[in-house]
C-alpha cells in the first residue's frame, strides 16, 4: 500500500501531473500579466499547453559535434530535480510529504541543478552562442546564489530548524515573527528572478545578444522539456518563498490551506512578472556588482537582525 501512495504522490499529486498543470497555469498568468502591463491582449489560457504540445511534435535536431547522450539526458535531469524539490515543500498544511532535518538545503541545491544542466547543455552543444550562454549561466549563478541562500537562512536561524516543515510550523505558531524577515523576502524575490533567468537578469538567454543562450541548439521535445522544467522551477521557487517567508498554508484546514497556497504562489508570480515588466536587462558585470555590493550585504544585514531578535526575544 505504501508504494501505491508513494507513486501517487510522485506522479499525480502533488507530483508530476499537478505540478506540470500548475506550472503551465503560472506561465500563463505570468505571460498574461506581462501582456496586460504592456497594454497588449496576451495569450489565451491554453497557450503554454499548446506551445508544449507543438514542441513535442517538432523534429529534434542534435548537432553533430554535440554529445547525443548528454544532449538527451540533460533536460530530464533538469525536470527530475525540480520535481523532486517540490516533494519536500509543505503545500496544503505545514508538513511536507517527505521531510527531514536539513531539507531546506536539499531543496536549495535541487533548485541549483537546473542551472547546472543549462550550463552543461550549452557547453555540450558546442555552438558559439550556446557556449557563451553557458558561461554566462555559471557566472550568474555565482551572483545570485549567495544572497538567496543567506536570505533563506534568516528564517531558518530564527526558527532554529533546517527543516522546511518545522520552520513552517514555527512561523504558523508565531506569525508576528514573519514581519522580521521582510527584507529577506525582497532579497529572495530578486535573487529568484536571477535564478529563473528573467528580465532584468535574463543575461544567459538574452535574445538580442546570444540568440537563445544555452538553448540555441535545442529543439523539439528536448527544448519542450527544458521549458517545462523552467515553468516548474517558477512554481517551486514561488512555493519555497511562500513557505519560508509568508507562512505557507498557516496550518489551516487542508482545503483552505491549498487555496492559500494557490493565492500566495500566484501573488509571487505576479510580483515577479511586474519585476520583469519595469526593468531593462542589465549586463553581466552590472549584475555581479549589484548582487555582491547590495544584495549580499543586505541579506547579511537581515541575518544580523534575526540573530539579535533570537538572542533578545526568543
Amino acid at each position: 500500500m505504501e508504494i501505491v501512495w508513494t507513486l501517487l504522490y510522485m506522479l499525480v499529486f502533488p507530483g508530476f501531473l499537478f505540478l506540470t498543470t500548475y506550472g503551465m497555469i503560472c506561465e500563463w498568468v505570468d505571460r498574461k500579466l506581462y501582456a496586460r502591463f504592456q497594454s497588449r491582449l496576451g495569450p489565451p489560457w491554453f497557450q503554454p499547453e499548446a506551445d508544449f504540445i507543438k514542441l513535442l511534435s517538432k523534429e529534434e535536431i542534435i548537432p553533430e559535434a554535440a554529445n547525443p547522450v548528454m544532449f538527451r539526458l540533460l533536460p530530464l535531469f533538469a525536470l527530475a530535480s525540480v520535481l523532486t524539490a517540490f516533494l519536500y515543500l509543505p503545500i496544503w498544511n505545514t508538513a511536507a510529504i517527505y521531510s527531514f532535518s536539513g531539507d531546506l538545503i536539499v531543496v536549495f541545491y535541487l533548485l541549483t541543478i537546473p542551472t547546472l544542466t543549462f550550463f552543461l547543455a550549452g557547453w555540450h552543444s558546442t555552438s558559439l552562442f550556446a557556449t557563451l550562454g553557458s558561461v554566462r549561466n555559471v557566472t550568474q549563478l555565482f551572483a545570485y546564489e549567495v544572497p538567496l541562500l543567506i536570505s533563506l537562512l534568516g528564517p531558518a536561524l530564527l526558527s532554529g530548524s533546517w527543516s522546511l516543515s518545522e520552520m513552517n510550523q514555527f512561523f504558523v505558531e508565531r506569525p508576528i515573527l514573519l514581519l522580521v524577515n521582510i527584507i529577506g523576502f525582497f532579497v529572495a524575490l530578486i535573487a529568484v528572478q536571477g535564478k529563473l533567468e528573467r528580465v532584468p537578469f535574463d543575461i544567459p538567454e538574452a535574445e538580442t545578444e546570444i540568440v537563445a543562450g544555452s538553448f540555441t541548439e535545442f529543439s523539439g521535445k528536448l527544448l519542450g522539456i527544458f521549458r517545462l522544467a523552467i515553468d516548474l522551477e517558477l512554481v517551486v521557487a514561488a512555493t519555497l518563498i511562500s513557505v519560508v517567508f509568508l507562512g505557507g498554508s498557516f496550518g489551516l484546514h487542508p482545503v483552505l490551506g491549498f487555496i492559500l497556497f494557490i493565492v500566495k504562489t500566484l501573488l509571487i508570480v505576479a510580483i515577479l512578472a511586474l519585476f520583469r515588466t519595469v526593468m531593462a536587462r542589465i549586463r553581466i558585470e552590472q549584475m555581479m556588482k549589484f548582487c555582491w555590493r547590495y544584495l549580499a550585504p543586505i541579506s547579511l544585514f537581515q541575518l544580523l537582525i534575526n540573530i539579535l531578535v533570537k538572542a533578545w526575544f526568543l
Binding site: L33, A35, R36, F37, Q38, S39, R40, L41, G42, L274, T277, V278
Partner: peptide, 11 residues
C-alpha cells in the same frame, strides 16, 4: 505599468 493594466488593451 499599473495604470495600463487597469485599462483595456489597445490591441
Amino acid at each position: 505599468v499599473l495604470k495600463t493594466a487597469m485599462k483595456p488593451p489597445v490591441t
